[in-house]
Design a protein around this nucleic acid. Structure first.
Length: 172
DNA sequence: GATAAGATCATCT
DNA sequence: GATGATCTTATCA
């Protein structure tokens, strides 16, 4: 079973999308190679009130993708060395996204390493993952039991104060 | 296990 | 000029 996830999948509550992306497959086509990897870890970044979310500081040239319609990739560079891949969620105009933290693939057990392995960089920023042919998400019929999903505080956002305790990180 | 620091640069103030 | 949605390596307990 292969079904590319459409706009409607992403146009829902960020926390729901983050949870349901677990077990789905992230497909990356680069040149002649196609990499398909099961998503095993995500984080939710929801809205202007979430201090851990880049959009909490308002709309900037960098975060404008997050304010746009759902189903688009938001790729950015952190710490000058690593890229992170997000997929924009919720309705057009509301800044929220799901960070893909890890997939089931060698050397892809972290956001930075994931992007290094899948050759994800800023050229993919703003790409539509529901209609593009470089990057998309498929449902391959993998069923994930609710009991298999774990949650924990998000990582690397100690500066976010009380928000850092939110259990908005999901993994298998 | 916890904490710290360096690499290195686009983005924001 | 300051700051990270990270990773790796190092040091301490």
């Amino acid at each position: 079973m292969r079904k590319k996830l459409g706009r409607k999948f992403f146009q829902r509550k960020t926390l729901i999308v983050a949870r349901e992306l677990l077990g789905k497959f992230l497909i990356r086509r680069s040149g002649g190679t196609v990499i398909a990897a099961k998503i095993i870890e995500t984080e939710a970044y929801c809205g202007p009130h979430d201090k851990a979310c880049h959009a909490s500081k308002g709309l900037t040239p960098r975060t404008r993708v997050m304010f746009g319609p759902p189903g688009h990739a938001y790729v950015y560079l952190v710490y000058g060395m690593y890229h992170c891949l997000n997929i924009v969620t919720e309705k057009d105009g509301y800044p929220a996204a799901v960070l893909i933290r890890a997939v089931e693939h060698p050397n892809a057990d972290g956001p930075g390493k994931l992007c290094r392995e899948l050759k994800i960089d800023k050229k993919l920023n703003g790409a539509d993952v529901t209609s593009g042919d470089k990057l998309w998400v498929e449902d391959r019929g993998v069923r994930v039991a609710a009991s298999a999903i774990k949650r924990s505080p998000r990582i690397g956002i100690d500066y976010a104060g009380p928000w850092k305790h939110k259990l908005w990180r999901f993994y298998l």
